[in-house]
Every structure is written in structure tokens, then in C-alpha cells.
Simulated scan of single mutants.
Amino acid sequence: MATTRDRALDAAVRLVGEQGVRALTHARVDAAAGLPKGSTSNWFRTRDALVAGVLVRIAEQERADLLAAMAPARTADEVVDVLTDLLEDATGRHAARTRARYALFLETTAAAAPSSVRDQRSQFEEWTTGLLAGLGAEHPEIAARTLLAVSAGIIVNRLTVAPDTPIRPIVAVAVRGCLPA
């Protein structure tokens, strides 16, 4: 059974993902989570603390998804498959969470982002760098950053103006562009 804190955080993620950052208030989180008034503020005394808590919660959930997906990929097609699946999830079943992450990123400065968010980014970048190095990329660090930038663009595009954009063909071109001919 989820704790009161977890229920509040999950409700906060949904609120921001579905209604935007302005919906993130202690009272609205309590109502959305079905908690007694004041419950969320017991865990997060200020709005800044609530924002930080939500970012950490999103990072924890996304890290679990990433770890599950980070199986070794030995071919370019396997890398394309893994990245496509991650992007499909981020813009499909986890779209509200992804919208919340982007909205809260824009609300905070890079320096204010919880270390778990930066650590997660580094972990995913290292994993992607390793995959591309194993596939023979001449500059695997740059290639990994390129794929992450393309992935971010796909996410924003699908969450805003083109929800039906096919992901796999774009990821395939990007992955193959990072590898020797």
C-alpha cells in the first residue's frame, strides 16, 4: 500500500502533467490524492519543497523504467528498438509524467534541480555512450548527446503538435548517423 507521501507525490505528478504547474498546490494535491487537508504540507512545507519532491519522484519512476530497458543491445537495430520503446512510453502511457517533468524543469533552474535528476541524466548518457562505443561510434560521447537531443525533440514534438509522429524511423536515422558507414 502506498504511503501518504507517495500518494501525494503521485497525485502531484498527475496534476502537473494534466493541468500544468499552476495546478500544483498543497490543497489540490490533497484533494487529488484523496488525503485529508494539510497532508501534503506535512511532508512538503513549501511549494519549492513540493516541486523538488515531485521532481525526485519523477526521477525515481523514470530511473526504474530506464533500468528495466537498459538491457545490453548488441546491434544498431536493438539500440533503435530500446530507444523507440522508451520514447513510446514517455509519450504514451507515461505522457502525463513526461509533461510534468518538462513543466517542472522549466519552473526551476538547473542548479535547483535535485541531484537525482542530474544523476539519472548522467546514467542514461553513460549507458547510451557505452552502447554506441560498442557499436563502433567514432565519438561515442558526442553521439550519445546527439541521440539524447533527438529524443528530447521527439518527446516535445509528440507531446505538443504531432502526437502521431512515428518514432522508430527517426530514431533509426539518428542511431545510424552516429555510427560509421
Rank of each mutant, 00 (worst) to 15 (best):
A2N: 03
R7D: 07
A8P: 02
R14S: 14
G17K: 07
V21E: 15
R22A: 15
L24M: 12
L24V: 12
T25P: 01
T25Y: 07
H26N: 05
R28E: 13
V29F: 09
A31K: 05
A32C: 02
L35R: 00
P36W: 07
K37N: 08
S41P: 00
N42H: 13
W43G: 00
R45H: 08
R45G: 02
A49P: 01
A49L: 07
A49Y: 05
L50A: 01
V51P: 00
V54T: 09
V54D: 02
V54H: 03
L55S: 01
A59N: 04
E62L: 07
R63N: 05
L67G: 11
A68V: 14
D77Y: 04
V80P: 00
V82I: 15
D85T: 12
L86D: 04
L86F: 06
L87F: 14
E88A: 05
D89H: 13
T91I: 14
T91N: 10
T91L: 12
R93N: 12
A96L: 12
T98I: 08
R99G: 07
L104R: 04
L104W: 09
T108R: 11
A110P: 00
A111D: 14
A111R: 11
A112Q: 08
R118D: 10
D119S: 06
D119W: 10
D119V: 02
Q123E: 14
E125G: 07
L131T: 06
A133G: 01
G136F: 06
A137T: 01
E138K: 01
P140V: 02
E141M: 00
E141Q: 03
I142K: 01
A143F: 06
A149M: 13
S151P: 09
S151Y: 13
S151G: 15
A152Q: 12
R158N: 06
R158D: 07
R158S: 05
T160D: 08
V161I: 09
V161W: 07
A162S: 10
D164F: 09
T165E: 08
T165S: 06
P169R: 04
P169G: 02
I170R: 00
V173C: 02
A174S: 10
V175F: 04
V175K: 00
L179E: 11
P180R: 09
P180T: 12
A181W: 10
